[in-house]
């Protein structure tokens, strides 16, 4: 967390569920929400990192399972009675073209990135309705607008999340449930390490990709948590159905010419 950050506790008393809450970006979101006064549930199939235990409760949640989504929300209802904020951050990436992608791989990435967002939201919305308000933040990607090579299924899932975000915003706006998506670029996480994993001179490659960014750096999980935190709270009360690109300027340009 940034040293100079001032917490306003604007989420004091709010109940927040973060799927993928034990992942790189998810942990940063859980910690930020806790710092802002929220009750946080890190919902993940991965185990709870020790460092997160002071910030969040853990719920073992498989986003691909309807039963798991029902169990998660039953737990939230029993513990808190309602839900204020849902962050659908669980996601995976497959680095393949469509010819290289097996049907099983295709179905797996869709079941996590798209079906997971659908299911957790489906069972989360009724708990937001009980409160009369809510904020859902999905994870899109700039890859939902434009493509990177050999990420075909991933790009398709993120395009689906973008459309689902707008559809949910249309359906639930009248109940004061807002739905937005953040669209990260390159964020320094284990997923990014895996993206660079098998590519020759990795350090040189990382530097080249970093320097294509107008801000000349990769995003951090805290950069993502800053925007998620804003979208979660009342300052964002008029924001809904929008796709928020957060990529250090990468996709504002056609091409970087000053490498």
């Amino acid at each position: 967390m940034d040293a100079e950050k001032i917490f306003t506790e604007h989420l004091k008393g709010r109940v927040a569920v973060v799927t993928g809450g034990c992942g790189g970006i998810g942990q940063a979101i859980c910690r930020r929400f806790a710092s802002e006064g929220a009750q946080v549930i890190a919902a993940d199939v991965a185990p709870m990192p020790e460092a997160l235990q002071s910030s969040a409760q853990y719920f073992n949640h498989d986003v691909t399972s309807e039963q798991s989504a029902q169990d998660l929300m039953a737990f939230v209802e029993q513990q808190f009675g309602h839900l204020d904020v849902l962050v659908n951050a669980a996601g995976i990436e497959i680095e393949k073209t469509i010819e290289e992608t097996t049907l099983d791989e295709w179905q797996r990435i869709f079941s996590i990135n798209v079906t997971g967002t659908f299911l957790t939201s489906k069972y989360g919305v009724p708990l937001m309705r009980k409160k009369g308000a809510g904020s859902i933040i999905n994870f899109g990607s700039y890859d939902g607008f434009i493509a990177d090579p050999s990420l075909a299924a991933y790009c398709a899932t993120k395009g689906a999340v973008h459309a689902l975000t707008k559809a949910m915003a249309c359906d639930y706006g009248k109940e004061n449930i807002r739905v937005n998506a953040i669209c990260p670029g390159f964020v320094a996480t284990p997923m990014l390490e895996s993206f660079f994993g098998d590519s020759g001179d990795i350090e040189s490659l990382k530097q080249q990709v970093r320097d294509i960014h107008p801000l000349r750096r990769y995003g951090t999980p805290d950069d993502m948590a800053n925007l998620v935190n804003w979208l979660a709270g009342d300052e964002a009360r008029y924001a809904s159905g929008a796709l928020w690109v957060l990529d250090g300027g990468l996709t504002a340009q056609v091409q970087q010419m000053r490498l």
């Binding site: 434009i146 990177d148 090579p149 590519s199 080249q208 294509i212 990468l250 996709t251 056609v254």
Partner: peptide, 13 residues
Amino acid sequence: GLTAASPLNPSLF
């Protein structure tokens, strides 16, 4: 097809 792709250079990978 230029702007269907991100500004990354695919020859980097």
